[in-house]
């Protein structure tokens, strides 16, 4: 099975690094979508089947916390697994997001092996 992945980050550099890393994980990927903020990500999710989302927190227009809350409010958080990729290190905020249904948390800068492990954990299990 090939998966559709959505990468959400306002940094084009980080999106490029994540896309490159995703392509070498060994997981079969159908299409990688990109969005520069939470609002754009919601549009992508509205129009496409997405198997997993990698989303930053600190973004303009709609940040990652607001994006996750939108998915919760729409009842989409269970069928659209979200992994947060952020510089955030506050345990309280991380626990809050995991409590909302976020599947995993990766801290920037992300090691390729960590991204691969999370991808396998979320998609294959």
């Amino acid at each position: 099975m090939a998966y559709n992945v959505l990468v959400v980050d306002d940094s084009e550099t980080i999106r490029a690094v994540l896309v490159r890393t995703l392509k070498i994980t060994g997981v079969e990927i159908n299409e990688i979508f990109q969005a520069e903020n939470g609002a754009k990500a919601l549009e992508v999710i509205d129009q496409n089947w997405i198997d997993i989302v990698f989303a930053d927190i600190n973004m303009p227009v709609m940040n990652g916390i607001e994006f996750v809350q939108n998915l919760v409010d729409k009842g989409l958080i269970e069928m659209t697994p979200v992994v947060i990729v952020s510089t955030e290190g506050c345990k309280i905020r991380i626990d809050e997001m995991l409590g909302k249904g976020v599947k995993a948390f990766l801290r920037k800068p992300v090691a390729p092996e960590a991204l691969r492990d999370v991808l396998f954990d979320v998609l294959e299990n």
Partner: peptide, 17 residues
């Protein structure tokens, strides 16, 4: 962005928002 996030955790700890 990454430096700032990591600095705040290193300096103020993991329990400050």
């Amino acid at each position: 962005n990454i430096i700032c996030g990591r600095f705040l955790t290193e300096y103020y700890g993991e329990n400050e928002i």
